[in-house]
């Protein structure tokens, strides 16, 4: 009897706790959702509807022309091409070179391997700040400033974080998978490319998506290396679109007669990321990222 009552009261407690949790989760959505709704709303307004208090949430009339107007206010087509180049070419390096290096660390025996891998891990938490300036000097001495090379070439040495992730994944594959192929005379590289790589697609997809996000969103790299207007990426285009506006620059509240256009272009730049996120959501929460933790 008393046990029955106990479980009953526990069940009641549980459902109350769940209701409270649901409420808290919903409340906490507000600061995450409303700025984005606000973005969409502003991007669709006529200039007259922008600086209005209290704010108008649903624009009337809806001004779809903002997108085309904003896109044509600067050479955004060119910027888009540049962004695609500086995203997808390095991505190849991030994915395939990292996978090859990870394979060597995970499944090939060679002297000193584990020490080198520890070094690789250590670079993961190394603050990048200490390499920015000398690397810039290196690339400027090579006359690589105002080319895409500084953003592309380093990717083909692999990236510590992706190497780590992919290695963890490879360690979960059964031992001796490649042995048969090797007995038949396949080289280590062939064993990697023909046997391991095809089994890796979920992990490779995860790396590809992370790589896409960080390359597409990168601002600092393009800013210090790409100065000519025709080399700008979308991020640079967006950032300079802003400073072209009047009343902007240091301690401001963003006052501009073209704010609706600025928000339209911001939304367009956000869009690919949102799409990638919605399409490949599951990869963002994959255990691969975590498999390195001893829990």
């Amino acid at each position: 009897m008393s046990v029955g009552r106990l479980t009953q009261s526990r069940r009641f407690q549980d459902s109350v706790a769940k209701a409270v949790a649901l409420l808290l989760l919903s409340l906490f959505c507000i600061p995450f959702v409303f700025p984005l709704i606000w973005l969409v709303s502003t991007a669709l307004k006529t200039p007259a509807q922008v600086y209005v208090s209290p704010p108008i949430w649903i624009p009337n009339p809806v001004r779809l022309r903002n997108f085309a107007e904003a896109w044509n206010a600067a050479p955004f087509g060119r910027f888009l091409v540049n962004s695609l180049i500086t995203t997808f070419i390095p991505m190849m390096g991030d994915v395939f070179v990292s996978a090859m290096v990870a394979y060597s660390f995970a499944r090939v025996r060679w002297p000193g391997r584990d020490k080198i891998f520890s070094l690789c891990l250590a670079t993961m938490i190394l603050p990048g700040i200490v390499t920015f300036i000398p690397t810039f000097i290196l690339f400027s001495k090579l006359k690589w400033v105002n080319t895409f090379l500084p953003l592309v070439v380093p990717a083909f040495s692999g990236s510590a974080f992706y190497i780590f992730m992919l290695r963890q994944f490879m360690l979960t594959l059964p031992e001796g998978l490649e042995e048969a192929a090797k007995i038949d005379g396949a080289s280590t590289f062939q064993a990697f490319a023909r046997i391991i790589l095809p089994l890796m697609s979920p992990a490779l997809a995860t790396v590809a998506i992370f790589s896409f996000m960080s390359r597409w969103n990168d601002f600092f790299g393009p800013m210090i290396y790409l100065h000519r207007p025709h080399l700008k990426t979308l991020m640079l285009g967006l950032a300079t679109f802003e400073s072209m506006l009047t009343g902007v620059g240091g301690g401001f509240g963003l006052v501009s007669s073209r704010l609706h256009l600025l928000m339209a272009i911001t939304l367009l730049v956000d869009l690919p990321c949102i799409l990638v996120f919605l399409l490949f959501q599951k990869y963002f929460v994959r255990d691969v990222i975590l498999s390195g933790f001893k829990l």
Binding site: P35, L36, W38, N217, L238, F252, L254, V255, T266
Partner: peptide
């Protein structure tokens, strides 16, 4: 919902939040 803003470009978010922080007309 909680993850989404983290994948948006910092540049875009900075522009948006400058507007959100506008003292008179901001969200």
């Amino acid at each position: 919902v909680y993850y989404l803003p983290a994948i948006l470009p910092v540049v875009a978010s900075s522009v948006l939040w400058s507007w959100v922080f506008n003292p008179e007309f901001g969200l």
